[in-house]
Amino acid sequence: MISKKIELHVHLEGSIRPATLLEIARRNGEVLPANTVDGLEELYRFTDFRHFLDVWVMTTNCLRTADDFRRVVVDYAKQARDHGAVYLEAIFSPAERVQDHGIGWDEIYTGYSEGAIEAQERFGLTVRLTPDLYRGCPVELAEACATVSVRYRDRGMVGLGIGGNELQGPLEPYRKAIQIAQDGGLPFVPHAGEAAGRQSIQEALNLGAVRLRHGIRAADDPHLLTEIVERGVVLDVCPTSNLRTGVVKHLAAHPLPRLRDAGVACSINTDDPAMFGTDLGREHELASQLGVTAADAYAAGLAGALCEEAVKERVAGMAPDPFSGRNGPVHNGPRLRS
């Protein structure tokens, strides 16, 4: 039996398979640097983190319509369900679409929201959404994004994140956008501690981050580890992503065992599964090689989930049994955050 799973860190734009991306690009009149499936797969063979970001921007700008956005949610929901996912907290990046192509906020948010509804209806998979800003985003655009995200809170938005190149600049310019989201009931879930270390992580924590997407560089600093554990901050760990972007050189060097030994809760995730040639099952296989069981990963995912309490309680009842390896109710799981 496939073990039940929770995924908290997957970029929907990075989950689009090459054949689907080609179809969407052609329909929207977008020219890609490769016009075959094999060509796109070759394009996805990243040389470093900067290369990955360049390719990500170039390819994901193909998405233009509400139906495009709906489709990527539904397509990935089926893939995740087939690997045992029962709850998915997915990321999308609306500000780039607005800035680069003038697509309306409502076109974007409606498409993703409708995709989440369809995923529940067709696959029984609960999907919640966390829009992402990006480092370097114009401040006014970031604040508009936060405002729209709050407006869509009753249509599946549960948090606000920020991604992009950590080395490009600090989070401080986005303090107001973060505050708009927090005041509107959307917690802050930034990328930090992937390509950069202590300063990036500490800044995110100081701005009220309740989860860190990646956060693996915290393993280099005992004081940060202590703070993360004491605050109950969950790290969203993505093993294959870390290897493909070169922030971790090989699996044996991955800091996941050190993080777990320090008592940090680590969810297991795909990040950009189509671009990295992975899936949720594969990530859990890698995590198990690093000492993280299905029950460990599920408990961390549950602790970090931002969905409403009724959903958490239902998802808690589906957890893998930590004693037998079978799927069953959790009797001594983490305290659920309201």
Rank of each mutant, 00 (worst) to 15 (best):
P222R: 04
Y134N: 01
L212P: 02
A25K: 01
L167K: 15
F92Q: 05
T20E: 13
G111P: 07
A34I: 05
G159M: 03
N206M: 08
T278P: 03
W56S: 13
L53C: 02
L167C: 11
I24G: 08
I180A: 09
R335F: 10
L235Y: 01
L129R: 03
Q99G: 03
E13D: 10
G124Q: 01
L235M: 08
R326M: 14
R27P: 01
V10K: 00
R337W: 09
I108G: 05
R50D: 13
Y109G: 02
R64D: 00
A305V: 13
R70S: 08
Y134W: 13
L171V: 05
V189D: 06
D236I: 07
F188C: 07
A19K: 10
A253Y: 06
L160I: 12
L160W: 07
V247H: 08
L306N: 14
E96L: 15
N269M: 06
G159W: 00
Q179S: 14
T245L: 12
Q79F: 07
L133C: 09
Q168M: 13
L256Q: 07
P320L: 04
T147A: 13
I117H: 03
E41C: 05
E23I: 04
F323W: 14
D236W: 09
R314N: 05
A119E: 00
A80L: 07
L306S: 13
Q199R: 14
R326Q: 14
A316R: 15
P187T: 09
Q99C: 04
L12C: 03
T226A: 15
C137F: 03
H83R: 14
L125Y: 03
L53P: 00
R81K: 15
L235R: 07
L167N: 14
T270W: 04
R282W: 12
G304V: 11
G325I: 13
V72E: 12
N28T: 04
E13T: 02
I16Q: 01
L224T: 08
F49A: 13
A262V: 11
A19Q: 13
I178G: 06
D54T: 07
M157K: 01
A90N: 05
V73Y: 10
V139K: 13
D154F: 02
P33F: 06
M1V: 07
V98G: 04
D38F: 01
V57Q: 10
E166T: 10
E227A: 12
V37D: 08
S324F: 07
T130V: 14
V292M: 11
L133K: 04
A319S: 12
E114W: 05
R128Y: 01
D183V: 09
E227Y: 02
E143S: 13
P329M: 01
N242S: 11
Q202M: 14
R231H: 09
R337I: 07
E309Q: 12
E308Q: 14
G263Q: 04
A294D: 15
T126V: 15
A146G: 11
N28Q: 02
R27L: 10
E23H: 08
G291K: 09
M1F: 06
V86Q: 06
S113E: 02
G193T: 10
R314A: 15
L63H: 11
A192Q: 08
Q79G: 00
Q179P: 00
H83I: 02
F46I: 04
G159T: 05
G215L: 10
E313I: 14
S15F: 00
